[in-house]
């Protein structure tokens, strides 16, 4: 198993003010598998991803990556095995660094050497040429920036790639290009992927198994085939499925719309 989560809880605050952003989450992803997490804002899906990446500590439970249980602090080698691609390529790339600087940074931190060759290879891998190497992010389109973000993750040759809504800031035609790129990278490198999205069609395109999250908990685990067939049991998953097909004239329950309480 490449990723194993056992009863993982991530919480903020203490005592009466404690809030569990993710509660008792367990899942296992095999080497080379793509696993999807779907849910809406606040469902805890990104929190789970961040806990796997080691960006936030988990309070309870066990996180094991490539057979190693992760402790409170991670070693450089452990960090190298897991890399993440964020939602917004406009926000995740340093605006005053060139593509070359952005891609050389992880090589320097992990003391890998051969920076010149590695940067060129990484650019080639994501379908960009040497012409893009000395540009700034603002000189690139949204799709090109997301390719750079993917190249930055791949340059450390990770075993696991975490994807947080990698295409939701992109146009439909660019989304198709990025999804094709991710499928190819997974195939060629045997990468394990854990992907978060609110778009069921996108997640079912890339992932075989999918967990549906709501209010910090996994409410249902299903497969892309079962989703396509509408064979889901949880009422929340069923509603998510209806909403994803476009305008749902039945309107659903209005309870979901209610205000957040005044704190």
């Amino acid at each position: 198993m490449s990723i194993v989560l056992e009863h993982v809880t991530v919480s903020y605050g203490r005592g009466a003010k404690r809030f569990d952003a993710a509660r008792n989450v367990s899942l296992a992803v095999a080497q080379g598998e793509a696993y999807g997490l779907v849910g809406e804002s606040g469902s805890g899906k990104s929190t789970v991803l961040r806990a796997v990446a080691g960006l936030i500590p988990h309070a309870e439970g066990r996180v094991a990556l490539a057979g190693q249980t992760m402790g409170k602090a991670r070693t450089t080698a452990q960090r190298k095995t897991v890399q993440m691609v964020f939602q917004d390529p406009y926000g995740s790339l340093h605006p005053s660094q060139t593509v070359d600087q952005i891609l050389s940074m992880p090589i320097a931190i992990h003391k890998l050497g051969n920076a010149d060759r590695r940067v060129a290879a990484a650019l080639d891998e994501v379908g960009l040429g040497p012409a893009h190497r000395f540009r700034y992010p603002h000189q690139l389109s949204g799709g090109q920036r997301q390719r750079i973000a993917i190249a930055r993750a791949l340059i450390l040759e990770p075993r696991i790639l975490l994807l947080d809504e990698p295409t939701s800031a992109l146009d439909v035609s660019v989304q198709a290009e990025i999804l094709n790129l991710l499928s190819r990278l997974r195939r060629e490198h045997g990468l394990t992927m854990l992907m978060v999205s609110h778009d069921l069609a996108v997640i079912a395109h890339l992932c075989e198994r999918i967990a549906v999250m709501n209010r910090g908990e996994i409410v249902e685990t299903t497969t892309a085939e079962a989703l396509a067939a509408g064979d889901v049991r949880n009422p929340y998953t069923q509603q998510l499925l209806r909403s994803n097909k476009g305008f749902d004239a039945s309107g659903g329950e209005l309870d979901l719309l209610d205000a957040v309480p005044i704190r």
């Binding site: 198709a176 999804l179 499928s183 069609a201 079912a204 395109h205 396509a228």
Partner: peptide
Amino acid sequence: GLLAALPELGRRRAELPQL
């Protein structure tokens, strides 16, 4: 081209046709 590039539930394709 846009319609074809959309991933679709129940119609999984190895490659999405790019516009």
